[in-house]
Amino acid sequence: MDTKIDFQHKMSAHCETGTLTSLLSNVGLEITEPMAFGISHGIFFGYFKSKNFPFPTFIVRSRPGEIREKLSNALKIELKRFKFKNQEEGMQKLDSLLDEGHVVGTQVDFFYMDYLPEWIRVHNNVHFVNIIGKKDTDYIVSDSYHQRTANINSSLLKKARWAGGYMAPNGFLYYPLKVNPDVDLKKPIINGIKKACRNMLNIPIPFLGVKGIYKFADKINTWPQLTRDIEHLSHEIMKINILLEDQGTGGAGFRYMYATFLKQASNILNNPVLNEMSERIMEIGDDWRNISYFAAKIGKNRDLGANRIKELSELIRKQGDAEKKFFTDLKKVY
């Protein structure tokens, strides 16, 4: 049966927050993307060397899916979630939810979203889109990275929902069952700020939070020994730019998005100090962006001598200092 649910498509900086806030808006809860990010204390840093990654890497936000879960807890949003081993069952469930009139949040491998230009599509198992209808063998998709709604063939969507590998989607679907459109954001904002400060400053693991930034600053000096040749090193150095700027971070590794959250929080809580903190994290974001720029430039030009890597390491260390001071001061506000 053909279905198309009335849905306001919006573009956004980041797929998880964009999909979630559009979905919530559709059922009456208006919340901005930065507000969802801030309340769910999405800002983070971690430096990892793991068997799951072919090379050491870093993250600048909480684990995919946590924004949805933390926000729903904080705002008492009731969500229905499903995962499927059986693909047919998972596709049928999607159809039945659409028939019931639900817009459905869906986890997919970004690579299969063939309405987006080929040159930006890479395998990434934690892309989120909303499915808003079905026409013949196509599903109608609201993807926050695309200017308008798009169609995707059923067989391709199936591949995208059951792509294998790290953080495989396993056909994950969700939709909001109940929201409070008049929810008071004040307490969730304060809790979100406190938890972000705790995560950045107090997790006793040496590669998480601010400690992770320092770890990154130290370990990047060893990258030349971990790489096969200059091409490999150049590729890994240029990936710094991609992780900070190119993966729906809103720029500067989500630091700009957190700045916008604090600005909005300042208005809601009528607290000008948060506005000052917003300016400060915006400036810290500028410095992360300069690191992206520096990494992109030296990587591209194969200008990767020990002094250059050391220079990059020092820039990252300064970010550790700046974020340590920032979150220590932010912690004092509440």
Partner: peptide, 17 residues
Amino acid sequence: IEIVVELQKTYGVRINN
């Protein structure tokens, strides 16, 4: 990113989220 940074340096505009 180079374009974004150069525009900020040259014209003082920040392109963010």
